[in-house]
């Protein structure tokens, strides 16, 4: 199991939490909450080792558009990059509701 940490600059404060996803093969669980500082923090716990560069790429892409000051915990069970992006978008949308 790998634990990966990423930090991105944040601009917009968020006030709510969101919990999306599923504990199950090919899926992931995301817990999103307001960040304690002005940045975005992501911690990924993944059951599949050796994919740090792919996570970096997916998260770089996501945070190139999303600027929320969020802390995100991800529990990954071998999700594809497409599934990761979809769940991140879902978490952000639910947080905004």
């Amino acid at each position: 199991m790998d634990v990966l940490n990423f930090t991105y600059p944040g601009e917009t404060r968020v006030s709510h939490r969101a919990h999306v996803g599923v504990v199950g093969s090919g899926d992931l669980e995301i817990l999103l909450e307001p960040s304690p500082d002005g940045a975005a923090h992501v911690r990924v716990r993944t059951s599949v080792d050796g994919y740090a560069p792919i996570w970096r790429k997916v998260l770089d892409r996501f945070f190139s558009r999303y600027k929320g000051c969020v802390s995100i915990e991800i529990n990954d069970f071998g999700a594809t990059p497409g599934m990761v992006m979809l769940r991140l978008q879902q978490a952000v949308e639910e947080q905004g509701q």
Binding site: V22, G26, D27, T80, G82, M83, L86, R87, Q90
Partner: peptide, 13 residues
């Protein structure tokens, strides 16, 4: 309210 459908075109809500 929305759940992920895994389709042959990839996942969607």
């Amino acid at each position: 309210a929305r759940i992920v459908l895994r389709s042959s075109d990839g996942p969607r809500l």
